[in-house]
């Protein structure tokens, strides 16, 4: 306990805050910039975990997080947005106010669920896992509240950042797991990227409302 814990707590808290920024942001280029920030804070948080746990393999995970989540994927998303020519606003389902309140409720819920069941765990990983669950839940909320496929991808990626944070906080997580998660995200991202262009080719839009009406759900 002490400064090491405080800084770990601050970085995890910053990730939750960045998730709220993602939830709030309704323009695609700015959304991608916040996602970049999200990945950057994740890399810092993982590096700090490496330092306080004296686990050198986590430094590798931090470098992977920095390279993949703060540089490569946001850069690729920027290019996708450029090529699709969609710099307009993201349509959010429901207003900003209720969405933010729902996000708050999710943070409260994840603390309420996580704190009792991890009562005997190490405090650093305890708070890390509780906040990582909030990041995951807010990521899901972002995916639910977005109409635009790129916005949903941003939500998915922030969700995955949350999982990474939880993995870094848990002591003794082998590097293989981190590596495979990182690569599966990359592959998922490639698949999503191809899908985005397919959807656009087929429906002339990446607004998923078009898909819903195609399936006959909405008239």
């Amino acid at each position: 306990m002490g400064l090491g814990f405080d800084i770990a707590h601050m970085l995890a808290g910053l990730m939750v805050l960045a998730s709220f920024l993602l939830l709030y942001q309704d323009r695609l280029p700015a959304l991608i910039n916040v996602l970049r920030l999200h990945g950057f804070i994740l890399a810092l948080a993982v590096a700090w975990q490496a330092y306080i746990q004296s686990a050198p393999h986590l430094y590798i995970a931090a470098v992977i997080a920095l390279a993949v989540k703060a540089l490569v994927i946001p850069g690729a998303l920027d290019r996708i947005v450029d090529r699709l020519g969609i710099h307009r606003e993201v349509e959010t389902v429901g207003g900003i106010g209720p969405t933010m309140l729902a996000g708050m409720a999710l943070v409260a819920l994840s603390l309420r669920v996580m704190l009792p069941i991890t009562a005997h765990a190490d405090p650093v990983s305890r708070q890390d896992i509780a906040l990582a669950l909030s990041v995951v839940l807010i990521g899901l909320l972002i995916m639910v509240t977005r109409r635009n496929a790129v916005g949903q991808v941003a939500g998915f990626l922030s969700l995955e950042n949350g999982i990474d944070l939880a993995a870094a906080g848990a002591r003794g997580m082998p590097l293989v797991v981190e590596l495979s998660v990182a690569f599966s995200v990359l592959i998922a991202f490639i698949v999503i990227g191809i899908f985005l262009f397919r959807i656009r080719e087929r429906f002339d839009t990446v607004d998923l409302a078009a898909l819903e009406s195609f399936r006959g759900e909405r008239q």
Binding site: M1, F5, D6, H9, G13, V16, L17, F20, Y24, I96, G97, M100, M104, V107, A108, L111, L115, P123, R126, Q127, A130, L131
Partner: peptide, 19 residues
């Protein structure tokens, strides 16, 4: 002001996992 309210609320929530 809603952002201010949200930050206050988040601060309170995060306090429960702090030192």
């Amino acid at each position: 002001l809603g952002a201010g309210l949200m930050l206050g609320l988040l601060g309170t929530l995060l306090l429960y996992v702090s030192r």
